[in-house]
Simulated scan of single mutants.
Amino acid sequence: MAEAVLDIDGVRAFVRVVDLGSFTRAAEALATSQAAISLRVKRLEDRLGIRLVDRTPRHVAPTPRGARFLPAARRLLDAHAQAVSDLTGAPPPRLDLGISDHVAGPDLPARLARLGFDGAGLVAEVTILPSRALRAAFGDGRFDAVLVRDEGEEPGGTVLATERLAWFAAPGFAWDRDDPAAGPLRLATLAGPCNVRAAAETTLDAAGLPWREVFVGGGVLAVGAAVGAGLAVAALAPSTAPAGLAEAGARLGLPDLPVTRVVLHARPLRGRAAEALRALAAAYRGPNAP
Rank of each mutant, 00 (worst) to 15 (best):
P91M: 02
L122W: 02
V60K: 08
G89M: 08
G218W: 04
R65T: 13
A226G: 12
A276P: 05
A113H: 03
G156W: 06
D144S: 08
R75H: 13
S38A: 12
V84K: 14
P130K: 00
P92M: 09
A191V: 07
T203C: 13
D205I: 07
G217D: 14
R65V: 15
L122N: 08
G141T: 03
Y284R: 03
N288C: 12
D19E: 14
L134K: 03
P210E: 14
A266P: 02
R75V: 14
E213N: 10
A243K: 10
D7M: 05
I8S: 12
V214C: 04
L269A: 09
D256Y: 00
V227T: 15
F117M: 04
R68K: 15
A36S: 14
P180R: 07
P287S: 06
G89W: 04
R270M: 15
M1W: 12
R58N: 13
L160C: 11
L252Q: 02
A234R: 04
A225Y: 03
T240Y: 11
A250F: 06
R197I: 00
E275Q: 11
M1H: 12
L190A: 13
L147H: 08
V196Y: 07
A133Q: 04
L52K: 05
A282I: 08
R51L: 13
F215G: 04
A174H: 00
P57R: 05
E151R: 07
A31K: 09
T189N: 07
G156T: 02
H265G: 08
P184V: 06
F173R: 02
D19G: 00
R111W: 01
R261M: 12
R177D: 15
A199N: 10
R114W: 00
I99L: 15
E275T: 15
T202Y: 10
A241T: 04
L112Y: 09
A274H: 01
D178W: 10
R261E: 11
T88H: 15
A241S: 12
D19M: 01
L77G: 08
L187N: 00
A61N: 06
W211K: 00
P106W: 02
L76N: 06
A241G: 09
T24C: 00
V146Y: 05
A282E: 07
R47G: 13
R164W: 07
G219M: 11
R285T: 11
R212M: 11
E28N: 07
R12G: 14
A266W: 05
R65D: 15
P287T: 09
P71A: 11
